[in-house]
């Protein structure tokens, strides 16, 4: 082949270090792109936020909680809010990729497809954490509970990682179907149940100021599911997005 005359010719050659650099560069590019697009449109975050606030308000009016029941019920309400808002965000995040064929654009990139998964996972996780950070103070106010315990914040982080890990994988699968809006929650909720249960139990224990010995098993379970879900998604993503 004739030599390229372009002054900025690209030759992507092999090499382990170059490969690793490209891998992380692709992840950061996807996160940057998701954040830049969202900062401009505010489509995804505003939908998640409005939905989360509506769920909180509905629960606040629907449940007349005594001081004692607040400690046991609010954690469930909190996680239901996160899960519902998160599902909305996951679906929209992947739908943006499907529009104008951008998912094909992602799949054409010469990096291992797990990089695409981790890029989308990080973007989704950031959106979810931002929504949670906005929702928590309001929640604390409405239900008169202290949600700013560092242990609770750790549970929220671990729960969100597990939820986003499996959610990103399933959203990538659902987005390729015509019934993607219905399919995602149907696929996601049963699979993510262990994460949600562990997160609710751990949050409950923290709210009730129980000893760490009671909380640790749930935290361990959360960590274990996070690892399993991320590892499984890492291995399966290529097959899921394959036509």
């Amino acid at each position: 082949m004739a030599e390229d005359r372009s002054p900025t010719v690209l030759r992507i050659d092999g090499g382990r270090e170059a490969g690793i650099r490209r891998y992380f560069r692709a992840i950061s590019a996807i996160v940057w792109k998701d954040l830049a697009a969202e900062l401009r449109s505010r489509e995804l975050m505003s939908a998640m936020l409005v939905f989360a606030l509506l769920v909180i308000l509905i629960f606040n009016f629907a449940l007349e909680l005594s001081v004692r029941s607040v400690e046991t019920v609010t954690s469930g309400v909190l996680w239901v809010t996160f899960v519902f808002a998160g599902t909305l965000g996951l679906g929209r995040s992947m739908a943006i990729e499907k529009d104008r064929g951008c998912l094909d654009g992602l799949l054409l990139v010469p990096v291992d497809r797990s990089a695409l998964y981790f890029g989308k996972l990080l973007g989704n996780l950031i959106f979810m954490l931002v929504v949670e950070a906005i929702v928590l103070p309001l929640y604390s106010l409405l239900f008169s509970v202290n949600l700013f315990d560092p242990r609770l914040l750790l549970v929220i982080l671990l729960g969100s990682v597990g939820y986003s890990a499996v959610g990103t994988l399933l959203a990538s699968m659902a987005v390729q179907t015509r019934t993607r809006d219905m399919l995602l929650p149907i696929l996601l909720f049963p699979i993510v149940l262990p994460v949600v249960v562990a997160a609710v139990k751990a949050s409950n224990a923290i709210q009730q100021s129980l000893e760490m010995a009671t909380i640790w098993p749930w935290l361990n379970l959360l960590i274990a599911f996070d690892v399993i879900f991320v590892a499984a998604a890492f291995m399966l993503f290529d097959f899921v997005v394959e036509e």
């Binding site: 792109k33 830049a36 969202e38 449109s41 943006i96 529009d99 104008r100 064929g101 951008c102 094909d104």
Partner: peptide, 12 residues
């Protein structure tokens, strides 16, 4: 590759 769709992000 150029496909039927432009593979571009509308909000960028």
């Amino acid at each position: 590759v150029v496909l039927h769709q432009p593979l571009l992000y509308g909000d960028l």
